[in-house]
Amino acid sequence: MGSPALATIQPDTSIGRRRTALLGLGTLVLLTFVLGAWQCQRGLAKLRLAAAASSAHQQPLRNWDGGTLPAPGQRLRLDGNWLPALTLLITPRSRQGQSGAEVVTPFRLHNGSLLLINRGWLAAGKALPPLPAVQPTVEMAAWPRFITLGPTPPEANRFQHVDPAAFARWANASLPVAYAYALNADGLIVDVPHAYLNADRHFAYMASWWGMTLAGALLWWRFRRGTR
């Protein structure tokens, strides 16, 4: 015969384990719901960026020599002068399987402000084409985001990322105020990225997370009924 003490301890232990499992499952349900809400917020934020960029594209082309910083997506004709001696090569950057670099040249506006202008992609081994003779027409952009595990100092004029602070230290110049893509850079391939156009991806992630939330909630409810 079993001990009366064991007979009373075993059911209590089983109930305690079930309650712990319910708590863990409930925590996972809450976590998946929060992750889905986060992806939803990111998707909505990118839709707002897309709307703002669309509005900026509809504005007429105008000259800009400094002052209030235009919004990303706005197209402008710049007044000022290039600083070709401070041209950067952002490398490695491949395109359709071919290695190369993005050419970034600073431009000084009449009020003294500096912009970093991505003139386009250059295939490895090709000579850098001359700067356009006309004043550049550009599309304003947000600063590119990048992740680095440690300091990545430039080698000569070769950088791994577009980093305004790193450029200012390297060039012993003022901090650039903005970043843009040239739209009339002869001899280079310009691909203006629009990162905000992938909003649908965030909504797909949201649906996946909230699908797991629903499945987990149903499982929690059924498991709770069996615990009673």
Rank of each mutant, 00 (worst) to 15 (best):
Q135E: 12
W210F: 02
A199D: 03
F159R: 05
P70W: 03
R93Y: 08
R62A: 10
P60A: 14
R75I: 04
D191Q: 13
Y179D: 02
D65S: 15
R48P: 03
T227H: 10
W121K: 07
A217F: 09
R42F: 01
A51I: 01
L69I: 14
P70C: 01
H161D: 07
L122Y: 03
L114T: 01
L69R: 15
R95A: 10
A21R: 13
R19L: 13
P164M: 05
G100P: 10
P154S: 09
P106I: 02
G211Y: 00
E139Q: 11
T227D: 15
L214E: 00
G2Y: 08
P70N: 04
D200E: 09
P4R: 02
G43N: 01
A215L: 15
E155L: 13
L128T: 06
Q96H: 15
E139V: 02
N63I: 10
R224Y: 08
A5T: 08
C40E: 09
G97I: 14
H194C: 12
R75E: 05
G24D: 08
L35P: 12
L214R: 07
A173Y: 03
W121I: 00
A180K: 08
L78G: 07
F223E: 15
T91N: 09
L83N: 10
L188K: 14
A51Y: 00
G36N: 11
N198K: 09
